[in-house]
């Protein structure tokens, strides 16, 4: 009898809290760290995060996020924000916002992104700070871009950090890699009218663990009864659904040259008429991979350190998945301070 009553009361109480919390929500806010646009060209913007004190490291870091989904992942909520943590650890932070491509961008290529936008952002920061070299931090696909850039312009990059960045596309068992290897990418680009929709990319990621998109709702009433948990859950949902389309030409080259032909790792990747030789990367490099990453498996990330020419290089394993690297509590406590310290140590 007592159990039965307890059960009901608990259920009603949960509902009471959940309904109050749900009703209280007006807006789900992400990426709230104060920042300003310092450079823009077309849809691409460079943000500089404002800070009150002087940074510990005089060389700022530019974050180059993937074209897939949005960099808001790195500042999802105030208490779990890779970017805020980096700022509070004394790093001056910029982030490139690639914007939302439309059909007018269908011919925008990797060349335009890397030799155009990325290079312009790097130059802007060099000039604004009166320095020769900046720090570059690339995430996932944005990390692959950063590797390519650093190999072409080693004179402009002081330190390079890659996070969950694929470079070895051939020797791994990742489903995404398996599928992409045999995909008829030309037909896909054409059929989508030159703009690969975010939903299509997302459905690909969803399929890797088909139950994930439902599993997360299991026990949603326990989440909803706690205001903070509920907000964080909704922030993640907002991020997941915020997925820009990808310019067709860029997608085509990324799939063909990398996923299908593994050109970067094999030293035959070309950009703007130049062959990209990863051995030319000679600055200090920190390679971060996630142990349980099912989107970019460690096998595709770890080889970075073998392929580059740097002497000062480090491999850092993060215990978690592709997204946990940025939002997990371990990321907040261990990873961002470690990254910041690594940069401070190499700021001389």
């Amino acid at each position: 009898m007592a159990n039965w009553t307890d059960n009901i009361v608990e259920k009603v109480n949960t509902a009471a809290d959940a309904i109050k919390n749900i009703g209280d929500i007006n807006e789900v806010d992400v990426a709230t760290a104060p920042r300003e646009v310092v450079w823009e060209d077309g849809k691409v913007k460079l943000f500089h995060f404002t800070r009150e004190d002087k940074p510990k490291a005089k060389t700022p870091v530019i974050i180059s996020y993937a074209l897939v989904n949005r960099w808001a992942m790195m500042d999802l909520q105030p208490d779990r924000s890779f970017i805020r943590k980096m700022i509070s650890e004394g790093i001056d932070v910029y982030v490139i916002d690639w914007g939302y491509p439309t059909r007018t961008d269908r011919y925008k290529s990797m060349e335009d992104y890397i030799l155009g936008d990325l290079n312009n952002c790097v130059d802007y920061v060099r000039k604004a700070h009166g320095i020769d070299k900046v720090n570059l931090l690339g995430v996932c696909q944005g990390g692959t871009f950063s590797l390519i850039y650093s190999a072409l312009y080693p004179n402009k990059i002081k330190n390079l950090i890659t996070m969950v960045t694929p470079v070895e596309f051939a020797d791994n068992d990742g489903l995404l890699f398996k599928w992409s290897r045999k995909m008829d990418v030309d037909t896909m680009v054409e059929a989508f009218g030159g703009l690969i929709p975010g939903d299509f990319l997302n459905s690909g990621f969803d399929q890797l663990k088909p139950m994930n998109k439902m599993r997360k709702y299991f026990g949603f009433n326990d989440v909803a009864k706690d205001k903070a948990k509920l907000m964080n859950f909704l922030r993640m949902e907002k991020w997941v659904s915020d997925s820009p389309a990808q310019a067709g030409e860029t997608y085509r080259k990324f799939i063909k040259d990398l996923y299908q032909q593994n050109k970067l790792a094999e030293g035959t990747f070309e950009l703007g008429g130049q062959v990209v030789d990863l051995k030319k990367i000679d600055m200090p490099v920190l390679t971060i991979f996630a142990k349980d990453d099912h989107i970019v498996p460690p096998d595709s990330t770890k080889p970075i350190n073998k392929l580059i020419g740097s002497k000062d290089k480090e491999l850092l394993e993060f215990p978690g998945g592709h997204i946990g690297v940025f939002v997990g509590s371990r990321s907040q406590k261990m990873l961002s301070p470690a990254v910041a310290q690594w940069l401070v140590d190499r700021d001389k």
Binding site: I19, I22, G23, I25, F220, L234, K238, D242
Partner: peptide, 8 residues
């Protein structure tokens, strides 16, 4: 109520 707070 919860569903309505999720992104479309």
């Amino acid at each position: 109520a919860f569903k309505n707070k999720l992104p479309e």
